[in-house]
Computed example of a mutant assay.
Amino acid sequence: MKIVVLLSVTTIFIVSCLATLAYASDPSPLQDFCVAVKDADAAVFVNGKVCKNPNMVVAEDFFFPGLNKPGNTSNPVGSRVTPVNVNQIPGLNTLGISAVRIDYAPNGLNPPHTHPRATEILVVMEGTLYVGFVTSNPADPALKNKLFTKYLYPGDVFVFPEGLIHFQFNVGKTNAVAFAGLSSQNPGVITVANAVFGSDPQINPAVLTKAFQVEKNVIDYLQAQFWTNID
Rank of each mutant, 00 (worst) to 15 (best):
A211G: 02
D39Q: 09
H166K: 04
S184H: 07
T10P: 02
G96M: 01
N137W: 00
N217Q: 14
M1L: 13
M56T: 08
V9P: 13
G163M: 09
A105H: 03
F64W: 08
P29I: 01
Y104M: 01
P205M: 11
K144S: 13
A139L: 15
K216Q: 15
A193C: 02
I89E: 06
D39E: 15
T128G: 03
Y153V: 06
P70W: 13
E120A: 10
N137S: 14
M1T: 09
L92V: 09
G96V: 09
T11F: 15
G155H: 07
K210E: 14
F212I: 10
V84K: 05
R101S: 08
V5P: 13
V37E: 12
P65Q: 08
G108C: 06
F62I: 12
L95F: 12
A195P: 01
K52E: 11
T10E: 08
L30I: 09
A224K: 15
D140P: 11
V159G: 08
A40H: 12
T94Q: 14
K69G: 00
L122F: 12
S79C: 02
I203P: 05
P201Y: 13
L147C: 07
V44M: 04
V192L: 14
L143T: 02
Y221T: 13
F13A: 12
K210C: 00
N110R: 04
S136I: 01
D32E: 14
T149H: 02
H115F: 11
D231R: 02
V218I: 15
N194M: 09
P161R: 06
G66D: 13
G172V: 07
P111G: 10
P116I: 11
T94D: 05
P205A: 11
N175K: 15
K52C: 05
A59D: 12
N110K: 00
F148R: 08
V177M: 02
V44E: 15
S74F: 08
D200W: 11
L208F: 05
H115S: 05
E215N: 09
F167E: 03
V134A: 03
P138L: 10
Q213W: 00
P54Y: 04
T20N: 14
N87T: 09
P65F: 07
D140E: 12
P29T: 09
F179K: 03
V9C: 07
G188S: 06
D39R: 01
Y104F: 15
F160H: 06
V50P: 12
V58G: 10
V131I: 04
F226A: 05
P111M: 12
N93A: 00
N72H: 05
V84R: 01
K150M: 12
G71W: 04
Y151L: 12
D32S: 14
A24Y: 11
D39C: 01
D32N: 15
C34K: 04
R101T: 04
V15C: 11
I190R: 06
V134E: 13
E126S: 00
F133I: 08
A206Q: 13
A43L: 10
F179D: 09
Q31C: 08
I14C: 02
